[in-house]
Write a protein that binds this DNA or RNA. Structure first.
Length: 700
DNA sequence: GCTCCTCGAGTTCT
DNA sequence: CTCGAGGAGC
């Protein structure tokens, strides 16, 4: 056998073995044999460098660490999917498809929704030339070198003999870390004294973003294909399921659970079947995906705001786990609100480790009847925030008499931070510390709020620094921030470090260590230049949030006009009723609040003032707009500011009164609601076009 | 007085 | 995101 033939044979055997091992999970050759082939191939290639090709299995690790990842523009955007959490939502989805297509019982290509990260593989003339992350859907990162190290990703498409490869074939799919491989990998890392990966999903994402492909190569990653992007010179079959089979024939790995289901009952049965398999599947999933099978019908249905109308992700209900409630702490908020927080024995729920969960208030504790030591069900609801769903009464620790060891939990009657009485007004759910700004916790929260991005936006002033400023520095009220000197800050730092028993870095390192203090002073200085609405919000008047502050600023135009307004004048402001109006008037009636405002002014805090603006003007006057999802060209705030400048009222939630919804990337429940109510929806491009036409944006 | 809309406030983890 | 409660309209 000639050397080129032998090389070709070895490459084919290795590729087949890779496929069997990673895709079919059924090794066909012993590891030793595989290693022998690989070594032989490496030897032959070393002796005949001219025969080395990029798609040879020896070339998976290119070895050259890239400095950073280049940006890749996807030829066709990588789409997001609508989500459904209930059978009713799926029924709606199927009904819409039935109505739009006239098919009584449409066929769906169905697959598990793998919890990994989406990538796009670009094959040109049959060879893998580029691999990219999803990014924002339009642009991702070039991670070709890293993806090449995945043994389940073919470097070259396996074409049937005599058939030419497609000129371009972009394959979309999911990179993930199989559960068993994740456990094995972490066990090894821990044994070696390293830091384990948090969960398979993050492990996969982190591995792909390694600058050194050599590291990625050591991570047990796998890939499943689920769709395509740009295609040239490749005859598309009639259905999505046939397309997937075709990808499989080209050597691309597919989830073995892929199937075809007919109609609503079919997809729901599939959902049930996969949910039952969830724990035994070798990879993490968070739901299943239904795609209308016929490609011609897919095209007919089209897209809404970057999500196809012909596909939906049917998510599994929030995951629940059992753990032990080790204690209940109480936190004091900016308004004095007392919030009980459950301290939990750390538990992994839906991919993240949960140690805290809010218990909201005393009513919630009573409703749940949680006691320290109880076994509780922790759930990650609404995708993110963990909550204690219920307790497991059978597991409550009890004494020999059968009585619970722990009494029911009662909120303390004195504030843990300042000792002031905790009061709960009749009929209200929240209890509050009565200490006001005497309470250090409230003072710190007030400062944090004042400095926050949406208020005065003081860069460099975070939670940690505020702790020290209040405990060891001269800061008692927000106005004190504007008289701070470098010496104050360094003295404060020394005291804080002395308490912590740290060698004073300020002394040790001299000038370098003053950098943070200079940055903070710079941040404070910049915040002097602000707007009336930011200042009003920053003052932290109860029930005056961003929206109300904006209304007040517009209505009165100047701070003096607002401060001079009585309860009656305030009632005339939109969205201000008796409660809020009394709070505002009450706030400014207090001499120390008036003095605070004067101090801020005299220390250079300033903002533009103007005449009252009590009516909206512009092309969007009278329209209420809601922004949802992520925009790529600008932030949501920025878009909102543009819309307001054109006369729109920008609201936070969708209702009958909403006249327009702008849906960006990964828009969720608000978009769904807008559709349900039949409200006009714009995608980002429409918005940008509109802004351009009204002179809010330059260029095309 | 009832009901629907909004807004405010608080929260978790990476 | 969710809950509670204020505002506004009927």
């Amino acid at each position: 056998m000639s050397v080129p033939d032998r090389i070709a044979e070895l490459r084919r055997r290795i590729a087949d073995a890779d496929r069997a091992y990673y895709l079919l999970d059924a090794p066909t050759v012993p590891d030793a044999e595989y290693d022998r082939w690989m070594r032989e191939l490496q030897g032959l290639e070393a002796a005949h460098p001219a025969l080395v090709t990029p798609e040879s299995p020896t070339q998976r690790v290119s070895g050259r660490p890239s400095a950073a990842f280049a940006e890749v523009r996807h030829a066709l955007p990588m789409l997001s999917l609508q989500n459904a959490f209930t059978e009713a939502e799926v029924a709606d989805f199927v009904r819409r498809i039935v109505e739009a297509t006239g098919e009584a019982r449409p066929a769906f290509s169905v697959e598990p929704k793998i919890d990994g990260l989406a990538v796009s593989l670009r094959y040109e003339d049959g060879l893998l030339v580029q691999g990219a992350t999803r990014g924002d859907g339009a642009r991702g990162e070039d991670v070709t070198a890293n993806l090449r190290t995945l043994r389940s990703i073919p470097l070259a498409l396996r074409m049937p003999a005599g058939e030419p490869p497609p000129a371009v074939l972009e394959v979309r799919g999911e990179v993930f870390m199989p559960k068993a491989a994740f456990e094995r990998f972490n066990a090894e890392v821990i044994a070696a004294g390293g830091k384990p990966l948090a969960n398979p999903r993050n492990g996969a994402a982190g591995s792909l973003r390694q600058l050194d492909p050599g590291i990625t190569a050591k991570r047990p990653l796998a890939f499943f294909a689920y769709g395509i992007g740009e295609v040239r010179g490749f005859a598309l079959p009639a259905t999505h399921s046939a397309l997937l089979r075709a990808l499989g024939a080209l050597g691309l790995p597919l989830s073995p659970e892929i199937d075809v289901a007919q109609g609503l009952d079919g997809v729901l049965a599939y959902h049930g079947r996969i949910a039952a398999l969830r724990d035994v599947l070798p990879y993490d999933i968070d739901g299943v995906v239904y795609k209308l099978d016929r490609l011609d019908l897919q095209e007919k249905l089209g897209f809404v705001a970057r999500a196809p109308r012909w596909a939906i992700a049917h998510k599994f209900p929030a995951q629940e786990e059992l753990t032990i409630l080790e204690g209940i702490d109480v936190q004091v908020g900016r308004t004095g609100a007392i919030t009980p927080v459950a301290r939990l024995r750390p538990v992994r729920v839906g991919g993240v480790t949960v140690t805290n969960a809010t218990l909201h208030n005393a009513d919630q504790i009573a409703r749940l009847d949680v006691r320290i030591g109880d076994t509780v069900v922790v759930r990650r609801a609404g995708d993110v925030i963990p909550e204690v769903a219920r307790i497991v009464p059978e597991r409550r620790p009890s004494g020999p008499d059968g009585q619970p060891l722990q009494p029911p939990f009662v909120l303390p009657s004195a504030c843990p931070e300042c000792g002031s009485a905790i009061e709960r007004p009749e009929g209200e759910a929240v209890a509050r510390c009565s200490g006001g700004l005497v309470c250090p916790a409230q003072r710190k929260q007030a400062l944090l709020h004042f400095a926050s991005r949406r208020a005065m936006d003081i860069e460099g002033l975070g939670e940690r620094l505020i702790e020290d400023l209040v405990d060891f520095g001269p800061v008692r009220s927000v106005a004190d921030l504007y008289t701070l000197t470098l010496d104050d800050l360094l003295a404060m730092k020394r005291r804080a470090e002395a308490r912590d028993g740290v060698t004073p870095e300020t002394v040790k390192q001299g000038k370098i260590a003053t950098r943070w203090a200079e940055n903070l002073l710079g941040g404070i200085d910049q915040s002097r230049n602000t707007t009336l609405e930011r200042l009003l919000f920053a003052l932290g008047i109860r029930d005056v949030g961003e929206a109300t502050a904006k209304q007040l600023a517009r209505w009165f135009g100047s701070l003096d006009a607002l401060m001079a307004a009585d309860v009656e004048a305030l009632l005339a402001v939109p969205d201000v009723g008796p409660v809020v109006s009394a709070r505002i008037a009450g706030f400014f009636a207090q001499p120390h609040h008036r003095a605070l405002v004067e101090r801020l002014r005299s220390h250079g805090v300033h903002w533009p003032e103007g005449p009252p603006q009590r009516t909206a003007e512009g092309p969007l006057a009278g329209r209420t707009v809601v922004l949802t999802g992520g925009l790529s060209a600008m932030g949501r705030d920025e878009a909102g500011a543009h819309l307001e400048a054109l006369g729109a009222k920008v609201a936070g939630s969708v209702s009958k009164k909403t006249s327009l919804v702008v849906a960006g990337e990964a828009a969720g429940s608000k978009l769904a609601k807008a559709r349900e109510l039949g409200i006009e929806v714009w995608e980002e491009a429409t918005l940008l076009d509109f802004l351009r036409r009204h002179g809010r944006l330059a260029g095309p």
